[in-house]
């Protein structure tokens, strides 16, 4: 019960914070001075989803929780974690939902194989189609009489 209540309160706190501060994403206070490090932090940020936004990465979002996650990412970087360790760290706590790039696992094989399967299937059908059809026209030569009739039709008196 108490746990539940405090969870409620926490979510109320986060909600209000994010509603009342119309700040832009990424505030200079949290940024690294070293441009290479900063670029790396952003690359990682682009791969993490802001949990309460619709399809925004934490790098793009101005929600409070996105900022928290950015700070977490930066802390892990200072700790010396590699990119994949950071992503693993975050997804361990928040679930696979935070990964904008789904990790390769049994439930995403179908997703990741989609481009190759689609291209492969398409190419297969294309080749079958091209091979299965006659390369030259069936000898459907028009007789002179037919040609004359066709010319007649095309000259515009045919159907009368």
């Amino acid at each position: 019960m108490i746990r539940h209540l405090s969870a409620c309160l926490l979510s109320a706190a986060i909600l209000m914070l994010s509603l009342s501060i119309p700040a832009l994403a990424l505030d200079p206070g949290e940024m690294f001075d070293n441009p290479a490090q900063e670029a790396r932090a952003r690359d990682i940020g682009r791969q993490l989803r802001c949990l309460k936004c619709r399809n925004q990465s934490i790098f793009d979002s101005n929600a409070g929780i996105a900022k928290d996650l950015r700070v977490v990412v930066r802390e892990r970087m200072i700790e010396g974690d590699s990119d994949s360790e950071i992503l693993a760290y975050v997804s361990e706590r928040f679930g696979d939902y935070v990964l904008l790039k789904p990790r390769m696992a049994a439930h995403t094989y179908a997703l990741w194989s989609a481009p190759l399967v689609l291209l492969g299937l398409g190419s297969f059908f294309l080749i079958m189609y091209l091979r299965g059809r006659p390369l030259t026209a069936r000898a459907q030569v028009l007789s002179d009489e037919d040609r004359a009739r066709a010319q007649h039709l095309l000259d515009g008196e045919g159907s009368q």
Binding site: L9, A12, A13, L17, G64, D68, V71
Partner: peptide
Amino acid sequence: GPSAEQVAAVQNMDADEQADLISGMVEGL
């Protein structure tokens, strides 16, 4: 200001501190 870290730190607060923070927020509203 009230940094995001502080808000994140709500998780680690004891119940009294938490209640204090929340009621401050509500009175602010």
